[in-house]
Design a protein around this nucleic acid. Structure first.
Length: 256
DNA sequence: ATGGCCATACCCTATGGA
């Protein structure tokens, strides 16, 4: 049985619902799309997806953050909050698809709010690590997919795209990401492309996309048995060149 | 060498993003 699902930080679903619908129409094999930064409450989420026959689940809030799932099959939501994340911000929603648990996440950026803002980022990474251990103990296959706001290594951002002390690069952020790997998870892109620059985000400023001054911050981490099924990781870079795009592009996971 | 953007809120400039 093959399975395809995707992640996209959309930077406001109300502004870009038409881009998402177009993308889904052009990617009929994608069963589930995980969205981040929808920037609205559940009742404000565009209705056109359900009207077109999709199943939708939303963990939203006013103005900021917010995550959602758009699926071609029914969506059982296992939780709309990451256990152990000590904030009511809408940054996690989890479902099950063909016996696979899929956690859709939006990690705090960590550059705003001073020490408390950075601590919130580390708290999310710790909670995600605990979630990894819990799901493995339960014997579940799972994927944690979304906007991690972490560049795991120096190969994961364009030279000078970030200042050296940025929260996306801080040693504590990278250690939190590595701890997830040490818990047994596989970085899907690096499994298929061990080296090389593969970006998922380009800033709106300074012609970053035209100069390919990007970041790799949208990741999929797979549990051990799921990693054995990995056949594809596609970064849909062309989406960044469309009219009024998100600053992130879709990433697509293919499993046998 | 430098600066360059965008979305939201409840009224327009501040905040967060990365």
């Amino acid at each position: 049985m093959s399975l395809t699902f995707a992640s996209w930080n959309i930077n406001s679903i109300r502004t870009r619902a038409h881009l998402v619908k177009d993308w889904l129409d052009r990617n009929p094999d994608c069963t589930l799309l995980c969205l981040q930064e929808i920037k609205c409450e559940a009742h404000q989420f565009p209705k056109l997806f359900e009207e077109a026959g999709f199943h939708v689940a939303v963990a939203g809030q006013k103005a900021y953050n917010g995550v959602a799932l758009i699926s071609r099959v029914p969506l059982p939501v296992t939780t709309d909050h990451l256990p152990g994340f000590e904030s009511d911000e809408a940054r996690y929603i989890e479902t099950e698809l063909e016996e696979v648990t899929i956690g859709n996440l939006y990690l705090p950026n960590g550059n705003s709010g001073g020490d408390a803002g950075f601590a919130k980022k580390l708290n999310f990474l710790e909670a995600l690590h605990r979630r990894s251990l819990t799901l493995q103990k339960e014997g579940r296959s799972f994927a944690f997919i979304g906007d991690y706001n972490v560049c795991p290594t120096d190969e994961d951002y364009a030279p000078k795209a970030l200042s050296p002390d940025d929260a996306l690069l801080r040693p504590e952020s990278r250690a939190g990401f590595r701890r997830l790997l040490w818990s047994g998870l596989t970085d899907a892109l690096r499994c298929l492309h061990p080296a090389g620059r593969h970006y998922t985000f380009w800033d709106y400023q300074a012609g970053a996309y035209q100069r390919n001054s990007g970041l790799r911050i949208d990741h999929a981490l797979l549990s051990p048995r799921l990693a054995d099924r990995l056949t594809g990781f596609t970064i849909d870079k062309d989406e960044r060149g469309r009219e009024k795009p998100s600053d992130h592009v879709p990433v697509v996971i293919d499993l046998t």
